[in-house]
């Protein structure tokens, strides 16, 4: 019961934290602090938070392996849905303010601009994941099919990082940081690495347990 309450509190905290960038944007919008090019600021901010939250979602399982905190998994859906929330804002800003809802313009962009192709691919892959995020959908698909479908998140992560990497003009440092984190999160899923992390944890647990035993 106590544990349940703690998880609920953590979830509330996560909700507020993940919403904070959006709140900050809205406040900045009303106080005229979005800079000379507000649309660009909104596009970049929502894009960055999509990537950050997507990587955070992908970090949960490895983190659980390292710490042994099983409850971390219960934060995964909310983190992923917040990533999708920022992606929707990002895409809507593009479609309405950049493309003026001109379908031909969007089609040409997706077909001709590699970074938009990648970004759009990530968007298309994440839509079914968001749509099947409810417990009812997990049940309907069955855990096996659901899990298989949700592996799309890895491809979406790669596309998201490529989207950023391919759009910058000269300074690649920031997108490379995201690429690096994504690579680490992928490596942390290799069976050998998972085994090593779990072994390390149980050894650590054993050491911690030792003094109280004596």
């Amino acid at each position: 019961m106590n544990r349940e309450r703690r998880v609920a509190a953590i979830k509330t905290g996560l909700f507020a934290t993940a919403l904070a960038p959006f709140t900050a944007l809205v406040v900045a919008g009303f106080t005229d602090e979005l800079g000379a090019n507000p649309v660009e600021t909104i596009t970049h901010t929502t894009g960055e938070w999509t990537l950050r939250l997507l990587l955070a979602t992908l970090a949960i399982t490895p983190l659980r392996h390292v710490t042994g905190w099983v409850w971390l998994t219960r934060l995964r859906r909310m983190t992923g849905l917040f990533a999708f929330f920022y992606l929707m804002l990002h895409f809507t800003t593009y479609a309405v303010l950049d493309a003026s809802l001109d379908l031909a313009y969007v089609v040409e962009d997706v077909a001709d601009r590699l970074y938009i192709t990648a970004g759009f691919a990530a968007f298309v892959m994440l839509v079914p994941l968001a749509a099947t995020s409810t417990n009812a959908m997990v049940r309907r698909l069955g855990p096996l099919r659901w899990r298989r479908l949700h592996r799309l998140v890895y491809a979406a992560g790669i596309c998201g990082v490529l989207h950023y990497l391919w759009l910058v003009k000269a300074d690649l440092r920031e997108p490379l940081v995201y690429a690096g984190i994504l690579a680490i999160l992928f490596a942390a899923r290799l069976p050998a690495v998972v085994k090593w992390m779990q072994a390390r944890r149980s050894k650590g647990a054993g050491r911690r347990a030792a003094p109280s035993a004596s």
Binding site: A36, N37, V39, E40, L97, D98, S100, Y105, E108, D109, D112, R113, L114, Y115, I116, W166, L167
Partner: peptide
């Protein structure tokens, strides 16, 4: 003539919402 990575057909005038 597009930039290889983006279109040059439109621009956002600073201070305007749409391109």
């Amino acid at each position: 003539v597009s930039h290889p990575r983006w279109s040059q057909r439109r621009e956002r005038r600073i201070g305007e919402l749409f391109k």
